[in-house]
């Protein structure tokens, strides 16, 4: 009987560990998601949001909800990259547009 008990203990340990890992992953996802969303909001506030960013964020969230974390992080990374690039674009354009004005 003992081995059976041990194996069931092992199983619950495994379950516990994987739940913990998943929770860690989820909180990391949530942290990174919030960060990406802050960049998107900054781009939007500057009037420079790109067209795909919020759709990528939605897809990342849905994919994470479905438990497919690798893909979720990849989508999130794309969204974050775009949102940050859009903010940089807004920063550049705050002055750069002036040189294009026809004189």
């Amino acid at each position: 009987m003992a081995p059976a008990r041990a194996s069931s203990r092992n199983n619950s340990l495994l379950l516990l560990l994987s739940t913990l890992a998943m929770a860690a992953c989820t909180t990391q996802f949530e942290r990174e998601y919030a960060e990406a969303e802050r960049w998107r909001a900054a781009a939007a506030a500057a009037g420079h949001e790109w067209i795909e960013t919020s759709r990528l964020l939605e897809q990342a969230e849905a994919t994470a909800d479905a438990g497919n974390m690798d893909v979720a992080f990849e989508l999130l990374g794309k969204a974050r990259f775009q949102a940050e690039a859009a903010v940089r674009q807004a920063e550049r354009e705050a002055e750069a547009w002036r040189v294009r004005v026809i004189k």
Partner: peptide, 22 residues
């Protein structure tokens, strides 16, 4: 409006002026 017209935007980084002037 003028700033908007001459500002590059989007993933393709184009201003209205890039296409309709330059």
């Amino acid at each position: 409006g003028k700033r908007f017209y001459y500002s590059k935007r989007g993933q393709l980084n184009f201003a209205c002026s890039d296409c309709h002037i330059t």
